[in-house]
Computed example of a mutant assay.
Amino acid sequence: MNESLLEVNHLTKYFPIKKGLFNRTVGQVKAVDGLNFTIFKGETLGLVGESGCGKSTTGRSLLQLLRPTTGEIKYEGRNMVGLPPEELRRLRKDMQMVFQDPYASLNPRMTVGELIAEPLDIHQAASGKERTRRIDELLEIVGLNSRYADRYGHEFSGGQRQRIGIARALALNPKLIVADEPVSALDVSIQSQIINLLQDLQDQFKLTYLFIAHDLSVVKHISSRIGVMYLGGIVELANKRELFAEPLHPYTQALLSAVPSPDPLAKKSRIVLPGDVPSPANPPPGCAFHTRCHACMAVCRTDKPELRDVGGRQVACHLYNQA
């Protein structure tokens, strides 16, 4: 697992704020602001954080569905940022996405077979009988009957629609799948089925996942490592066992304190964060978390902490910036 598949260096994604008669740019929403991380082959890297922290924007930027403002995204050593469209299209065969809403991600005018075959048609990967065989095979792989190929998306339940989305993502035999909150819109009973399916597929096809979610219990179950995001940046990145056993960053500590315990007799100290998440259009100076942090120091208000190694994990916090 030490061989890297995807390397992200100083990634930013800013959205312009436009106002006035002449639609002038008056500011920027810093959705992703200086990300650095690596995804290793065969692992599942979980990405967690509050709504609006930049998780989904990160996932879409990695696949170039949103073009990054600055930074590098190296896939197997090759920087994808700024590649000509034709070269990027060839690389995209190796990277696919499973979207959050299993209904909105499926074109209601297309049959299930047409939806699954769309990547095959775009990349001219199969035609005729081979195309039909591949559609049937993919449906069977995700636990659906091949006879469903002539039906439409609205005829299926949420869990079945997400299986169709997964089948489409597998069509071109990708190496990396970005799963953007793939179970958050599903019933709890169905969530476990989809999570187990993703794990089985990972073992079967040697897949690598970036798993984006806000449910820490789901992320703990499926991930190898976990990155915690706050206001466009990663504040802690660690092995899941270390992270849950001993969170270092004050924000991670607050997040984990909110996870319900299955033991009704267990006493847990809840850390309640004051105030609201600052606006990414006007982030605070220094550490982005200092306005809500119980351990805030003077340096936190002026200097932005870097993500650095602390005892085998990475943390962006001045509490651990010792010489």
Rank of each mutant, 00 (worst) to 15 (best):
V235P: 06
A254E: 12
D180R: 01
D33I: 12
P283Q: 09
L176Y: 10
A31H: 02
C293I: 07
E137Q: 09
K220A: 08
R301K: 15
Q124R: 14
L172T: 09
I271F: 09
P280T: 02
A281L: 02
I212S: 01
V272A: 14
T57E: 00
V48G: 01
P16S: 08
I135H: 01
R225I: 04
F289K: 02
L198F: 03
L248Y: 10
G128L: 12
L139Y: 08
A31P: 02
D180L: 08
V259G: 07
T44A: 07
E7H: 00
P182Q: 14
K175N: 12
L5I: 15
Y230W: 08
L248E: 02
L172G: 12
V218I: 13
G227K: 00
G275P: 02
L144C: 03
A126C: 13
D180H: 03
V142L: 03
S127E: 15
L144E: 00
L231V: 07
F99E: 04
L255N: 04
A258E: 09
N36W: 12
L210P: 04
Q162M: 11
N36T: 11
G159E: 12
D94F: 00
R131G: 10
E118S: 13
L47E: 06
P264F: 12
E114T: 08
R151E: 13
V183K: 05
R78D: 07
V142T: 00
R163I: 06
R109D: 14
I234M: 11
Y152R: 11
H123V: 10
T58Q: 05
P84N: 13
A185I: 12
V32P: 08
S105F: 05
T252F: 02
C293M: 09
S279G: 04
K304C: 03
G153L: 07
Q202G: 02
E242R: 12
H10R: 15
V235Y: 08
A169E: 03
H249W: 08
D150K: 14
R131V: 08
D200R: 15
S127I: 05
S105Y: 06
Y103Q: 05
V228W: 01
R308S: 15
H249S: 07
R67D: 14
R24S: 14
S223Q: 02
I194F: 06
S56G: 03
L198G: 01
F205I: 03
V178G: 10
D309W: 03
G52W: 05
L256Y: 04
H214N: 06
I122A: 06
E140Q: 09
L5V: 14
R24Y: 01
T111V: 11
K267Y: 10
V228P: 00
Y251A: 05
R90Y: 02
L201Q: 02
V32W: 01
D200N: 12
K175H: 10
C53R: 00
E181V: 05
I226A: 01
K175E: 15
N9G: 00
S184T: 13
